[in-house]
């Protein structure tokens, strides 16, 4: 499926959960927060939340700032 991840188009395997996406990206889930189509996906739901074609995804973490 095709999705948008952090503003960039990306081709992802199917089916895929949020947990699967983070594993695919090599990212540890406790360090990031995930938003799918404008809504935060709680960490407890990462394993069950299925992604779909056309999803707009944001994966964020804390960085230095004022």
């Amino acid at each position: 499926m095709r999705a948008t991840l952090n503003g960039e188009p990306i081709e992802l395997p199917e089916p895929l959960t949020v947990s699967g996406l983070l594993a695919h990206l090599g990212v540890r889930s406790e360090r990031v927060a995930v938003e799918r189509n404008g809504a935060v996906i709680k960490r407890a739901r990462h394993g069950e939340e299925q992604l779909a074609d056309g999803d707009v995804l944001e994966v964020v973490s804390f960085v230095g700032g004022g």
């Binding site: 952090n6 990206l25 090599g26 927060a33 994966v59 964020v60 960085v63």
Partner: peptide, 17 residues
């Protein structure tokens, strides 16, 4: 204070703030 930003997917394993 800390900021929230898109994860830099190219910079894996980078030291965390």
């Amino acid at each position: 204070t800390v900021a929230v930003r898109r994860l830099d997917l190219a910079a894996k394993g980078e030291a965390s703030l």
